[in-house]
C-alpha cells in the first residue's frame, strides 16, 4: 500500500482517579486490583468534556503537527462508544472545529474499542483509491463503567487522531499494510437506552481479546512475511496493563518492545483511543526506519493489525505539539466524590 501518516495528535483530560479511591468505596483491596489489572489510576473527563471535545483537541493537535490546510481533509471518521448524541454525528462537530467543512464526508463509527482503527482503514482505502487527499480517523471516548463494576477501575477518557495521506515527503510514517480478524463474539455490549455496558467477565479474555488480537497479529505477520524481530515496537489495545503484556509474550515480543506504547497503567483504558494513543506514544520516540506493529481490539469482536514504518519526516514534525507523555504527566488527582460529580452520576 502507498499510504502513510501525515500527522497525529492526542488528548488526555487533566483529571485522574487512583485505584485506591475507587477501591475504598467498594471495599476492594487496591493492591490486588493494581496487581491484577496493572493499572494505578485512570483519566477522568472534566465536567465540560465529552467525546466530541476530546476528539477536537486531538484533531487540532493532529492538524497542527501535520502542517496541512484542513480544507484538504476529505473524510473524518470518529470512532467511539460514547458519542455525545445517540443520533447526530460527532464527526461534524470535529469537522467544523478544525475548519475542514464543507467539502468532505464525515461519519461516526462504532465498534467498541476498535472503531478508531476501523476509521484508519477507511481512510487508507479512500486515499489509496484517490477519492480524497487526506483522511482523518479519530478514536475518542469517555468510557462508562457501572459503579462497582470492575470496569470502573479502568474505563477512562482520551482521544487520538491520525491523518492519513498518500506516501511522500509529508508522511511521517508509512502504513505498510493492515489485516483484520473479525467474528461474532459477544464479550461486551451495551443495549440501547442502557447507561452502562455489560460484559462476560473472564469470557472477555481468551475467546475474545486474546483470540482476536493474536489472530490479527499473526495474520498480518504472515501476510508481510515478518517476524516479531522485524519490529522495534508493538502496541496492543489496552483494556488494562496486563492483557497487552500477555499478548506480547504469546506472540514472541519482548517486554522492551511493548512497554513504550503501554499507557494503561497510568491512564487506564481510553477505549477507541487506546491502541492509537499507544501508537502515538511510540511515534513520539521512534527513530526513522523503525517498524511498529499496532493491533487494536473491539469487543463483539474484531482486531485490526497495522504494520507501520517510521520515516525521516517524523523528526521535523513531532515537536510541534504536546507529546503523549506530556499529557500523561499533566494531571491532578480527584476523589471519588468529584469523580461522581464530573461523570454526571448524581441523580438530581
Amino acid at each position: 500500500m502507498d499510504v502513510g501518516i501525515v500527522g497525529y495528535g492526542v488528548y488526555i483530560p487533566w483529571y485522574r482517579i487512583r485505584v485506591e479511591e475507587i477501591a475504598k468505596v467498594w471495599g476492594d483491596d487496591p493492591e490486588n486490583i493494581k496487581r491484577g489489572l496493572l493499572v494505578e489510576e485512570k483519566s477522568v473527563p472534566g465536567p465540560d468534556e465529552d467525546t466530541a471535545t476530546i476528539a477536537v483537541e486531538a484533531a487540532r493537535n493532529a492538524v497542527k503537527q501535520a502542517g496541512i490546510d484542513p480544507q484538504g481533509i476529505g473524510a473524518i471518521y470518529v470512532g467511539s462508544e460514547s458519542h455525545p448524541y445517540a443520533v447526530k454525528p460527532t464527526a461534524t462537530i470535529v469537522a467544523e472545529a478544525i475548519e475542514a467543512t464543507p467539502d468532505l464526508t464525515a461519519a461516526d463509527y462504532e465498534f467498541a474499542c476498535k472503531a478508531g482503527t476501523a476509521g484508519i482503514q477507511t481512510c487508507m482505502g479512500a486515499v489509496e483509491a484517490g477519492m480524497i487527499k487526506y483522511g482523518m480517523a479519530i478514536g475518542s471516548d469517555t468510557a462508562q463503567g457501572a459503579p462497582g463494576d470492575p470496569l470502573e477501575y479502568t474505563a477512562a477518557a482520551g482521544g487520538c487522531a491520525f491523518i492519513v495521506g498518500k506516501n511522500g515527503s509529508e508522511t511521517l510514517a508509512t502504513i505498510e499494510d493492515t489485516y483484520s480478524y473479525t467474528t461474532d463474539t459477544p464479550d461486551f455490549w451495551r443495549r440501547d437506552m442502557r447507561p452502562y455496558p455489560k460484559h462476560g467477565g473472564r469470557f472477555t479474555g481468551k475467546p475474545a481479546y486474546f483470540k482476536h488480537v493474536l489472530s490479527a497479529a499473526n495474520g498480518l505477520l504472515r501476510k508481510l512475511q515478518l517476524t516479531p524481530q522485524d519490529f522495534a515496537y508493538v502496541v496492543f489495545h489496552q483494556p488494562n496493563g496486563k492483557f497487552p503484556m500477555h499478548a506480547a509474550e504469546e506472540l514472541g515480543f519482548s517486554k522492551e518492545q511493548v512497554v513504550p506504547g503501554l499507557l494503561a497503567p497510568k491512564i487506564g483504558n481510553t477505549y477507541s483511543g487506546s491502541a492509537m494513543m499507544g501508537l502515538a506514544a511510540v511515534l513520539d520516540q521512534a527513530k526513522p526506519g523503525e517498524r511498529i506493529l499496532m493491533v487494536s481490539y473491539g469487543s463483539g469482536a474484531g482486531s485490526d493489525a497495522f504494520s507501520i514504518v517510521v520515516r525521516d519526516t517524523i523528526e521535523k514534525k513531532r515537536n510541534a505539539t504536546p507529546k503523549v507523555l506530556d499529557y500523561v504527566n499533566r494531571k491532578v488527582n480527584i476523589d471519588y466524590a468529584a469523580y461522581v460529580k464530573f461523570r454526571r452520576l448524581l441523580v438530581k
Partner: peptide
Amino acid sequence: MIFRRMGEESQDGVIYYGFK
C-alpha cells in the same frame, strides 16, 4: 482558547459547544 462543552438546551436537547 480551547473547545469545550458549554451547556445544553435540556436533557434531550442539543448540546452547546464553545470556547473556554
